[in-house]
């Protein structure tokens, strides 16, 4: 059962998103982060900044490699998967930035968000959760 559940969660997070699928950048409802500008989100997910506008450190979470992650980076940064991977390999191996932590499923990303307020992730808009605050909608 555990293996089946893990398979389904991985499968769900890699399901092909539709062309117009909306993605939300989210944080825990109880966290201190109330808003995020688009520029700010782009700088954070490109590794050019590690703190929110008020100087508080932000922990970022990536979904597993797959179509949802690809669509998120395309919507936020305009970079396709190859550009994103090349960009991040430069950032990491020049010591300029560390990539977001990778959750192995949407469920794990939500769990981490709730465990550590101030953590930021992105989820398909269809994965709404009252315990999460939507900081930005990308479509």
């Amino acid at each position: 059962m555990l293996a089946l559940g893990l398979f389904l969660s991985i499968h769900a997070s890699n399901a092909l998103p539709s062309q117009d699928m909306a993605i939300h950048i989210v944080t825990a409802e109880q966290g201190h982060l109330r808003q995020l500008q688009r520029d700010e989100a782009e700088l954070l997910f490109l590794g050019r900044r590690t703190t929110a506008a008020d100087g508080t450190p932000v922990i970022l979470i990536d979904l597993p490699a797959g179509p949802i992650r690809d669509r998120f980076y395309l919507l936020l940064t305009g970079k396709n998967p190859q550009q994103t991977r090349a960009y991040w390999s430069r950032q990491v191996f020049t010591g300029r930035a560390r990539p977001p932590l990778e959750a192995h499923s949407i469920e794990q990303a939500i769990e981490w968000l709730l465990q550590t307020p101030g953590t930021v992730a992105y989820l398909p808009a269809s994965n709404g959760d009252a315990r999460l605050r939507v900081l930005m909608r990308l479509q």
Binding site: I59, T84, R85, S89, P99, L101, H104, Q108, Q115
Partner: peptide, 21 residues
């Protein structure tokens, strides 16, 4: 993408709990 090698341990199927952040 470049990830923590330690993440490998987190997705071992035999693990009964999800690793904390």
């Amino acid at each position: 993408m470049i990830r923590q090698l330690s993440l490998l341990s987190a997705i071992v199927l035999g693990s009964m709990t999800t690793p904390a952040l």
